[in-house]
């Protein structure tokens, strides 16, 4: 059932991806925009049912959760910030993440003792939300740089036509970073609290790789927020900072995963 629901979500996300990328292939349909919103909405509905039956432990569930958060943020960006071009990136990314989650294995997983379940769900949900917001900041930054380059070079092609205005993308980047930092911070604090409460000591029972990557991500996101909020960076410089930060987080994750392979744990 979990896998079937994931496959349904995957199909709907894939259809949405096809529709959002259609204008780049010259298709201009009047119904495509409505469907490009309806498909991820329907996919998210199937996805949330699947997630409710899943224990959020292991690589597959974590990737699935990340994809779900991305789709939710994509829909929120469309609705609140008219950042429709965000889906050019989030839609294929979410599709790919769900595909990877299915390949990594999605089983209900080991049952966590009832008292610990709430801690774990909150920790995973907040951490993944923080990551998804960081990914959204990265996507907004990438769109910003592409649109910036086209506008500076006076090219008025598909990017100019389809991407949102520069200032809206800058705003989206800022919001994603500022919202992502508290979410990730809370996620980390919950992890430390979880360790302290259920494993004794200072919660250092968590895997070393998890700790290293979690803290690294927190520091990078904190730096990106700091340069935006305290140093008042904006525009191209802030976009480059977001991209550099997110790339570093991804690279460190891949490096740690190579050291400690396996799908049974996120790290």
């Amino acid at each position: 059932m979990i896998v079937t629901l994931h496959l349904i979500a995957l199909t709907l996300y894939a259809l949405a991806t096809g529709l959002v990328l259609a204008p780049f292939m010259g298709y201009r349909g009047t119904t495509s925009r409505a469907l490009a919103i309806a498909f991820p909405c329907a996919g998210a509905a199937a996805h949330v049912v699947a997630l409710s039956q899943l224990t959020l432990v292991g690589l597959g569930p974590a990737l699935s959760m990340l994809a779900f958060c991305l789709v939710l943020l994509q829909l929120a960006s469309e609705r609140l910030l008219r950042g429709s071009a965000v889906s050019f990136f989030t839609s294929p990314l979410a599709t790919g993440l769900v595909g990877l989650a299915v390949l990594s294995g999605l089983s209900p997983g080991t049952e966590v003792p009832a008292g610990r379940n709430a801690w774990l769900i909150l920790h995973v949900a907040l951490s993944v939300l923080g990551l998804a917001l960081m990914a959204l900041a990265f996507i907004a930054a990438a769109l910003y740089l592409l649109q910036f380059r086209e506008l500076k070079a006076r090219r008025f092609g598909q990017v100019f036509q389809l991407f949102p205005p520069l200032e809206r993308l800058d705003h989206l980047n800022r919001i994603a970073l500022v919202a992502g930092f508290p979410a990730l911070t809370l996620g980390l604090l919950l992890a430390i609290g979880y360790g302290a409460r259920f494993s004794g000591g200072m919660g250092l029972h968590v895997a070393k790789a998890q700790l290293v990557w979690g803290l690294f991500t927190w520091v990078v996101l904190g730096w990106a927020v700091w340069v935006r909020v305290v140093r008042h960076w904006g525009g191209r410089r802030a976009a480059l900072a977001s991209i550099a930060g997110f790339s570093a987080v991804l690279l460190v994750y891949v490096a740690l995963k190579l050291v400690q392979p396996g799908a049974e744990r996120f790290l």
Binding site: Q147, L151, F160, P164, P165, L166, E167, R168
Partner: peptide, 8 residues
């Protein structure tokens, strides 16, 4: 339109 693509 071009100004709109910069400032929204």
């Amino acid at each position: 339109a071009v100004a709109g693509k910069i400032f929204g």
